[in-house]
Amino acid sequence: MSMIHVSTTVNGDEVDFVCDPRETLLDVLRDRLALTGAKEGCGTGDCGACSVMVDDRLVCSCLMLGAEAEGKSIATVEGLAKGEDLHPLQEKFIEHAALQCGICTPGILVATKALLDKNPDPTETEVRYWLAGNLCRCTGYDKIIRAVMDTAADLRKAS
């Protein structure tokens, strides 16, 4: 099958790649762009481990074709920190021990940032239901919620 040339922006950088038209955005990120932060947990859009931002929309990158990224702006977990400076969410996840095996963490961080960008003052219930599409098998979620609520409070204070 003929390959497709795609021009896009990933974490602020202009990126060009060629891919098989059947390849998902997740496969492209992981196999062609060496951005392995997004993970394949289920491949069916149910677990959220592959969450990325496409323009201003939170998507499961396993459900989108790489070719559909043409002209779009993609943001992944790799773009959250600025060099050595972690994003406040990343710091709070470490501080609150809101991770164990860590494989769901990139998707949860991307999804949470999307929530806080839209809604800087979410209720705990809003956080719980927003993140209901991001499965974590290790933590039982409590520390994740605490880390998110704490980050949101800090960000509001700072703004």
Partner: peptide, 20 residues
């Protein structure tokens, strides 16, 4: 109560699992 040894790698997406 120290954080997980790889916590920084986990939150930055740098932690390598087999498929990574």
């Amino acid at each position: 109560p120290l954080p997980h040894d790889a916590a920084r790698l986990h939150v930055t997406g740098q932690a390598r699992y087999v498929d990574d």
